[in-house]
């Protein structure tokens, strides 16, 4: 499935950020500042991301390529959780329990 292929690519394929960091951004969990703030904003209220949030992450030593990957993982991670939660609600409403 196309969504699963996207996630597999982001979390399993080559990248400039480590797989652990990409996974943490995707999960919006287990990150230290200043990444924690940036990723939480991308997932929760992306319109509140500021130039300063990006500057702080850059100043912490991450390259633009790493920030690109981390932000993409954070966005796809949250959209995936929403999608999965909605599908689970649909399963529960239809009571089909399709695996």
């Amino acid at each position: 499935m196309v969504r699963r292929a996207l996630v597999a690519r982001l979390l399993g394929g080559d990248g400039r950020a480590s797989i652990a960091l990409r996974r943490a951004a995707f999960d919006n969990a287990g990150l230290a500042e200043p990444l924690r703030t940036l990723v939480a904003k991308v997932a929760g209220h992306a319109s509140t991301v500021s130039d300063e949030d990006i500057a702080a992450v850059r100043a912490s030593g991450l390259s633009e390529d790493q920030i690109f990957e981390i932000v993409v993982c954070a966005a796809v991670g949250q959209a995936t959780r929403q999608y999965d939660a909605a599908l689970a609600a649909l399963e529960s409403a239809t009571g089909e329990g399709r695996a």
């Binding site: 991308v42 992306a46 954070a74 966005a75 949250q78 959209a79 995936t80 599908l87």
Partner: peptide, 16 residues
């Protein structure tokens, strides 16, 4: 929901 997934992702990236 598939449409929503795509645009919930892209919308976040447009903002971020």
């Amino acid at each position: 929901l598939a449409v929503c997934f795509a645009f919930n992702t892209i919308g976040r990236l447009a903002d971020a």
